[in-house]
């Protein structure tokens, strides 16, 4: 057959020089937009205040956005399948409460931690079953779980924070350091590496992208799309559970409002990082960079003595700018 270049393929054809090839390959990286935005924001803040680029401050910033970043790893996988998980904030809170309840009953640390993780996993399983077996839309299913999770917390605590005695070693998870680096940041980095590899290099990762890219085509190619979706919701729940344990260890108090509204920050991180809510597109690294961008802006607002009430508006504006740039760029590529 005779094939001519369509305009689109002609534009997209990589240049065949070594340097040109590498540069264009680099430009293909979706995360580059948000990474650029991150560097710009970092530069701006560090020019205007000397306190930003200090080890203490940076590590504090990292630790403060690490919880959102950790949960964004589960979220971005869910979003890539074309779904959404609104329950992560509640699940995180409930998991920290279950962990606290364990300590209050005098259970061993390992059991308490497993209890927190199991809470997350169960909620994820619940979401996954609602979505894949009963076939509820993910938005509705996880909205229900959000309310149930939060409601359970109020029922259990009657609105009063739980502050059981905990062994010192447990507090290390949220408060300790490895060298200069806070433990939650270490957990975040480790999970980023693990799940980035999972999404890029494994069969499961490929199936996640295919399911979100075209669920019908994936299913007809033999991908068990129901199982893929069930698994990503379970992972998202499990990861939110882990975030709950870290959170409890950090403050040693399980607040009834812990994690309230966190799902929006987590979704924002994934979206800033290039994930498309339509599914099929996104990355773990992108979500982490997205969480970092939001976290650093929050810190910069404080350091630069900007009215803290303006912080949310600024974060919102940055989200819109970053995502608009991304949309505009992918459209101008004709892709």
């Amino acid at each position: 057959m005779i094939v001519r270049d369509s305009p689109a393929t002609a534009v997209l054809r990589p240049r065949h020089t070594a340097v040109g090839g590498r540069v264009s390959a680099l430009l293909q990286v979706r995360e580059l937009n948000v990474l650029t935005a991150l560097l710009v924001v970092v530069a701006l803040i560090s020019f205007s205040t000397p306190y930003f680029l200090t080890t203490d401050n940076l590590m504090g910033v990292f630790r403060s956005f690490s919880l959102i970043a950790i949960m964004s790893i589960g979220m971005v996988m869910v979003i890539i399948t074309g779904g959404i998980d609104l329950s992560v904030g509640s699940v995180m809170g409930l998991s920290s409460l279950v962990t606290a309840l364990g300590f209050q009953s005098g259970l061993p640390t390992a059991v308490c931690i497993l209890g927190g993780l199991a809470t997350g996993l169960l909620f994820g399983l619940f979401n996954g079953v609602l979505i894949t077996v009963i076939r509820l839309p993910p938005f509705i299913a996880t909205l229900g779980s959000l309310s149930i999770g939060r409601g359970l917390m109020y029922i259990i605590t009657h609105g009063v924070p739980l502050t059981p005695d905990t062994p010192d070693v447990f507090a290390e998870i949220g408060q300790g350091y490895v060298g200069l680096v806070p433990v939650p940041v270490v957990i975040m980095l480790a999970m980023t590496i693990v799940f980035s590899v999972v999404m890029r290099k494994t069969r499961f990762g490929r199936h996640v992208y295919a399911t979100g890219g075209n669920e019908m085509a994936a299913r007809l190619s033999g991908v068990k799309t129901g199982r893929v979706k069930l698994l990503v919701y379970m992972l998202s729940g499990l990861i939110a559970g882990l975030a709950g344990i870290v959170s409890f260890s950090r403050y040693l108090s399980a607040e009834p409002a812990s994690g309230f509204g966190a799902e929006l920050d987590v979704i924002a991180a994934a979206a800033i990082g290039g994930a498309s809510l339509a599914g099929g597109v996104g990355s773990v690294e992108g979500a982490i960079i997205g969480a970092a961008l939001a976290g650093i802006i929050a810190n910069g607002v404080v350091l630069m003595n900007i009215n803290t009430y303006a912080q949310q508006a600024i974060t919102g504006a940055v989200i819109l700018i970053a995502v608009s740039l991304d949309v505009w760029r992918s459209r101008s590529k004709g892709a």
């Binding site: 290099k201 494994t202 069969r203 499961f204 490929r206 199936h207 992208y209 295919a210 890219g213 075209n214 019908m216 085509a217 994936a218 007809l220 190619s221 033999g222 991908v223 099929g280 597109v281």
Partner: peptide, 29 residues
Amino acid sequence: KGQGLVLGMNVRENFSLTHLEAYSPNFFV
């Protein structure tokens, strides 16, 4: 477009979707 291909994926990824296990005896592709 609706059933045969994942349009956002590349040629290689679409090609291997039916038999990915052939390239990933264990977890990794």
